[in-house]
Amino acid sequence: MKRLRRILTWAALSAIAVAFLYPFVWLVSASFKPRGEVFDHRILPETFTFDNYLQIWREAPLALWMANTLLVTVLAAVTVTITSAMVAWGFAYFRFPGRNLLFGVVLATMMLPGAVTMIPVYLIWNSLGMVGTLTPLWAQNLFGSAFYIFLLRQFFLTLPREPFEAARVDGAGNWTIFTRIALPLCRPAVVVTLLFEFQAAWTDLMRPLIYLRDSSTFTVPRGLKALLDQFGFGGQWHWEILMTASVITTIPMIVLFFLGQKHFLRGIATTGGR
């Protein structure tokens, strides 16, 4: 009975893995097909061609778009991780009147739809002369994120207070305790935050659509939208070009996850333990 249960478990997990992997495998396969065979549902292309990869580099400044996206994602991930960790540490370590109420207000901001603040935020950036630049895509993260504050606070709460109190007795200040002890101890949660925000910024389309005007400042999602507009004409969509661009821009996220998967899984497993 135990062996049968194990077999059924492995079968179910394998089926789920195939269901998740098939779309990406199909995407890679479609990128090597000519336009007429993109939707023939063959995993192995009947006509195998590299022309799509050559054409995409000729038709679009994909390297520039990826460089812009990398700059935005790195700045967004680093800034939101640092600021959210600082706020989370304050809520987890320090005791002050109204702490729980203030934390509840921070969490309540997650219930506010992004569409409510979209126009006021745009007017602010427009008054600062930042529309058309990459700054609005990442600078908002300087104020932290309620979700990441909650995630990191839950991890900080699982840490014993003794090392911090011992460090304080030895003369360490609050900033030293935070940077030299607290942050290294919550490395898995920090990696989770970095990966989550990196993925969110890398795939963000709404803000680039709102703030970017010139193709030289486009990010990858905005560039893909431009390619969709460029190659979708006369009722004949050049899906093979879009599939190829999607493969090229998806691979960095896959590589990033594999590089950080150990810390990612550990952070998911241990966050929220208290």
Rank of each mutant, 00 (worst) to 15 (best):
L265C: 01
T117C: 04
V255E: 00
V190Q: 02
Y211E: 06
P221D: 08
L123N: 14
L228W: 13
G260R: 04
A15I: 14
S84L: 00
G272T: 03
K2S: 11
F147A: 15
L209A: 00
N174A: 13
L137C: 06
T179A: 10
N100F: 03
L102D: 09
Y148N: 14
M206Y: 15
T179R: 11
P208Q: 02
G234A: 13
G114W: 10
L224P: 06
T217P: 01
R153N: 12
S216Y: 07
G104N: 04
L13D: 00
K262H: 09
L137V: 06
L157G: 02
P208S: 02
W237S: 14
P252R: 10
L44F: 12
E165N: 12
V169H: 01
A15V: 14
Y22I: 10
T250F: 03
Q236F: 15
F143W: 07
V220D: 07
L159H: 00
L8P: 01
L142N: 00
F196S: 10
A67Q: 08
T133A: 06
A201S: 11
W175E: 02
G235E: 09
F258N: 07
I56L: 13
W26C: 03
I16F: 12
I16D: 01
M253Q: 15
L112S: 04
P120L: 06
G98V: 01
A77I: 04
S216T: 14
A15D: 02
S84Q: 01
A17C: 09
L183D: 07
A85S: 15
